[in-house]
Nucleic acid binder design. Structure first.
Lengths: 342, 342
DNA sequence: CTGAAAGCGCTTACAG
DNA sequence: CTGAAAGCGCTTACAG
């Protein structure tokens, strides 16, 4: 007189691992192991399980997997902005590496605000992500602690730090800015301005490199520094160009902290008929799309963001799979691209 | 002689709903209901539960919730490309609406390939997303079926369709192109070219609007259509500009299907010293960043993509919460922005 | 309005 | 190498 078990579930009509196991005539956990390949299973059983899975169009339920294993197939990626092509390219590279490896990317936009970063971290860490990718190395202590306490493998993007247990892939922003400034000096410029927006940590590291190179040449002048906290854009670049030319008419070169600003500066020069580079040389940073098409084409620093994204994803993959990482602080360098504007 | 239950779990050290319930001295499911506010719970109990949750820094486990409810807090968003500012802005608007509402965004990039879209759909649907946002209305039958069968609420972006059970927020690409072409005709242009890259469905709808307007004016000439399947870019715009000027020297206006192409065209004109709009008028589409700064500034169609993203997210929120949607096919229109180039 | 129990679909020790 | 059982942390009928 056994009652048939009452069906109270909210079955979804999708086939489950139990269905696969039944069809393949093995236990669920043999099916689980066969499909994941984590432990040795008899070859014939593996074949039977795989055939059954295929026949039933079995797709594992990520939520169940995450709950049982305390680890999801998500990788959370935190970037400052979506409106800056640099970060989007980084994201694109990361996605192309992680998606085929079976991970889903959760993208969080911090808008350069520490509190937003903390909130996002709290929310994403609740998902028990398999890995974490964050931009830069400067963040609030709270955020730093959350990352460390979570135990989730984490790789830092765009900058490098040599610190035990910290993984990073990037370049030296300061060295790149130093090289670019040196190029201007070699061209004979002496009144070289640094024009920056946004003022995030990397922009300030570039300023350091700029200052250092100028001090070495004995021609640093803080009046030639324009540090504007507004978000960067071509429009801002144009405005700052005009303004500086008015205020410091003896300026002979402008180092814009990012290519979008520099492109705006170049267009403003064209509009105002200021000859570049004769009257004033112009350089940018990052080598964003369009810079090579400007009139004249923009001299800039090419940052290897595609490689940074790809390599950081690879490093994270190693970390998530418990494999050793040869170079925890990977410096991918930069390239000085000399074109017509300086 | 009851044995203490053996602890076999993989406890994570985080507090669970059971911990909260214990501290608040209620049952777990009262705690669950109090926290979610789904059903009436005594006010005092609610307060006690909330206090306990706060004290324990309780964060619900999304995986457990998803497994139990057969619905996650994910919203999957499928866009063609990450390298087109248009889609990134759409994404940004969507994120800003969805994140505060407690949803996480899963972003899938299809690269305009139907197979990639199907794969992404398969993988994302396995996560039982709470909602789905897809770009455009053209897709493979298989993809269409997957969406329908999943039962997941879905909103289509950028175009509108009046079809029962289908939700969309966008604009009429064809009407916008028609208006822009009419503007060129009114300016006196007669040899108007349509220059396109990528050739996705929306680009072809614009072509329709262009052809229609020219046929009405009796001056359609298919030799003035340049349809290049390569991805759009400023560089491509410059190349196509030069090429067309050489092959069809009597052209008096160029309608580029996107602002990035048009910007490239404008820069090429500047470089080749072709007067715009005197020798040839130039217009673009979408009003991307930088178009207002060109020399001359670009005449274009402003598409309300920020509003499209926001409204589509709102509509999806309604759908996910089982609320009625007043306008399932929401046309947000466009704006003709007349600047110096035409 | 509240609670005890069952169940979601997996993985993980444990035993053999 | 394989299986039976317990458990992950929630939500959902069901009963009161």
């Amino acid at each position: 007189m056994t009652e048939p078990p009452k069906r109270r579930g909210r079955a979804t009509g999708r086939s489950t691992l139990a269905d696969v196991a039944r069809l393949a005539e093995v236990s669920v956990n043999t099916a689980s192991r066969a499909l994941r390949g984590t432990r040795a299973v008899d070859a014939e059983l593996v074949a039977r399980v795989q055939a059954a899975a295929k026949q039933l169009r079995y797709v594992p339920d990520p939520a169940a997997r995450a709950l049982a294993s305390a680890r999801s197939s998500h990788v959370a990626v935190l970037i400052p902005l979506l409106t800056n092509a640099l970060f989007v390219e980084l994201l694109d590279a990361v996605q192309r590496k992680l998606t085929p490896a079976g991970y889903q990317t959760l993208i969080g936009v911090t808008h350069y605000r520490p509190e937003e970063e903390e909130e996002l971290l709290l929310s994403y860490l609740a998902h028990r992500p398999a890995g974490l990718l964050v931009t830069g190395v400067d963040r609030s202590d709270a955020a730093r602690r959350m990352i460390a306490d979570s135990g989730v493998p984490c790789v830092h993007l765009m900058e490098t730090v040599r610190q035990p247990g910290v993984y990073s892939v990037g370049l030296s922003q300061q060295a790149a800015a130093h090289a670019l400034t040196t190029h201007l000096l070699q061209r004979g410029c002496r009144r070289i301005a640094y024009i920056a927006g946004q003022l995030d940590p990397r922009v300030m590291q570039r300023r350091q490199g700029y200052e250092q190179a100028l001090r070495e040449a004995g021609c640093y002048d803080s009046r030639l520094e324009v540090l504007d906290p507004s978000p960067t854009s071509m429009a801002l670049g144009g405005r700052l160009f005009e303004e500086l030319l008015r205020r410091q008419p003896d300026v002979d070169a402008m180092f814009f902290c990012n290519d979008d600003l520099a492109q705006g500066g170049l267009l403003a020069a064209l509009r105002l008929q200021v000859p570049v580079p004769q009257r004033v040389a112009i350089v940018g940073f990052n080598d964003l799309s369009g810079s090579e098409l400007m009139l004249p084409p923009l001299t800039t620093i090419r940052t290897p963001r595609w490689q940074i994204g790809t390599q950081a994803a690879s490093m994270l993959l190693d970390l998530m799979h418990g494999q050793p990482v040869a170079q925890p602080a990977l410096d991918l360098g930069f390239e000085l691209v000399v074109r017509g504007s300086a």
